[in-house]
Design a protein around this nucleic acid. Structure first.
Lengths: 131, 131
DNA sequence: ACTTGCCTTGACGCGGACGTCAACGTCTAG
DNA sequence: CTAGACGTTGACGTCCGCGTCAAGGCAAGT
């Protein structure tokens, strides 16, 4: 298939596919007219890249998976280097979650503080003197 | 004080301070020789920007706080627009936390799956036939 | 006079993952 | 024959928050 079809079948833009190629993640053979020609294996490759991206891997980090697939393995994560990336990303995710949790707390505290200053002590309102 | 001192006292680089000015977040008066001159108010302003950045606000999002301080309020979050930013960022943080939590789960699952395929069923190993 | 250290503006660089445009070749249908 | 859809390469733009020069002006000490 050509680049347009691959784009349509994966939901990745043609621009992205060419970019992947420029990064050495995707290799297309060329037709006589210079058009890129892809096969089903490439389709799987792009899909692999896609799913890995959705779980937060950068393009660079998908490289071990791509190479693993290229070297004949059934899944991209059959290789030690891929598994290592999983581990790293898991750690990163945990670190990020921790940081973000802290930030969320600080943010909530700041909001609460600001609201408290805006309408001071709205829960224990002293009775206003009646005339 | 001049830009170098302000930088030293806040930990923000001079380059950053000039950048803030270019973005309209910081306004310095000029000495006769063209040097920027800052006062204590500016110091507070920069500190406000700093703390807001650590809780994830972009420079653009600190603008309401800065303007709030400039308009004479004691704290940057005394104004409705600032509080609105707090709310938005809190929502964003929650959304991000949810997404990231999901991603973490998927990553963990992928890792577990890959390990399982690598050493299939290491917990319930069928007894290998002994000769 | 000279060095040192501060200050000025302006312009370009970075990372990540492409989008967008230019300027053109190719294939297919009517 | 021509229009339109699709393909090609290359270069530059985007967002964000500055970093890093470049090429000087200004002030103070020796």
């Amino acid at each position: 298939m050509r680049i347009g079809e691959l784009a349509q079948r994966t939901g990745v833009t043609t621009r992205a596919l060419r970019f992947y190629e420029s990064q050495g993640l995707l290799a297309a053979r060329r037709a006589a007219n210079g058009y890129r020609e892809y096969d089903e294996e490439d389709l799987q490759l792009v899909k692999e890249i896609q799913t890995l991206q959705t779980v937060g891997l950068t393009l660079e980090e998908t490289r071990p998976f791509v190479e693993c697939l290229r070297s004949g393995h059934e899944t991209g994560d059959s290789c030690a280097s891929s598994i290592e990336v999983y581990r790293r990303k898991l750690e990163e995710a945990d670190a990020l979650l921790a940081r973000l949790g802290g930030i969320r707390g600080e943010l909530a505290a700041k909001l609460a503080g600001a609201l408290a200053r805006q309408a001071p002590d709205p829960c224990v309102v002293p009775a206003s003197p009646r005339p």
